[in-house]
């Protein structure tokens, strides 16, 4: 009986967090659906991360993303919950950030990617963190991803820096390599675990 009283409060959160606000299919606790947006500087490997995750492919010279591109993928977590990710991969060039709100609005997850060999891209990641805190939905799950971990000999952004930024902003942090597929699935599984579960109606 107490549960019913607390529902309205939780509900708004669940709507924002999951299933892109006004979804059609009912999201139950076992089958989650979430809109995920990838943000980050140009050339850090956003599209490559998605392609590796969705198709298991890596192409060093993939196409420039114009505007945004969309892919979806479903995974099953250990507790047999399935999560369907609706992934919006955005264009990296600075001016396309004018269009980014279109895509991150109503997103339940934001993955901010930088390139561990490029301090500049890390700066850009900081910009995105701020931008999302200002304009994203309040209970958005954010992940900070240092990509190109395979190029560790060219590393210019320390893992510690990434961790610090993530900690400060309540994000979770992971270093991946879209090339070797290292930590790619882990990234999405971890996101899946952190998703707010819709409260069950009694």
């Amino acid at each position: 009986m107490g549960c019913a009283a607390s529902l309205p409060g939780k509900n708004s959160g669940a709507l924002n967090g999951l299933t892109s606000s006004e979804n059609a299919a009912p999201a139950d606790a076992k089958n989650l659906r979430v809109k995920l947006v990838l943000l980050g500087d140009s050339g850090v490997g956003k599209s490559c991360i998605v392609l590796q995750f969705v198709r298991g492919q890596f192409d060093a010279t993939s196409k420039v993303t114009v505007g945004a591109s969309f892919l979806s993928q479903t995974i099953t977590l250990q507790d047999s919950t399935t999560v369907k990710f609706e992934i919006w991969d955005t264009a990296g060039q600075e001016r396309y950030s004018a269009l980014a709100p279109l895509y991150y609005r109503g997103a339940g997850v934001a993955v901010i990617v930088y390139d561990i060999t490029s301090p500049e891209s890390f700066k850009k990641a900081q910009y995105w963190v701020k931008e999302l805190q200002k304009h994203g939905s309040p209970d958005i799950v954010m992940a900070l991803v240092g990509n190109k971990a395979d190029l560790h000999e060219k590393r210019e952004v320390l893992s510690e820096d990434g961790m610090e930024l993530a900690e400060k902003n309540g994000m979770f942090f992971i270093e991946t390599s879209a090339k070797t597929a290292d930590n790619i699935n882990e990234l999405f599984e971890e996101i899946g675990k952190r998703l707010p579960r819709p409260s069950q109606p009694s």
Partner: peptide, 18 residues
């Protein structure tokens, strides 16, 4: 599309820009 929560511009934006 509204019912599904899809904005037209999500799709048409990339079409026009490219």
């Amino acid at each position: 599309l509204d019912y599904l929560g899809v904005q037209v511009a999500w799709i048409s934006g990339p079409w026009f820009l490219s």
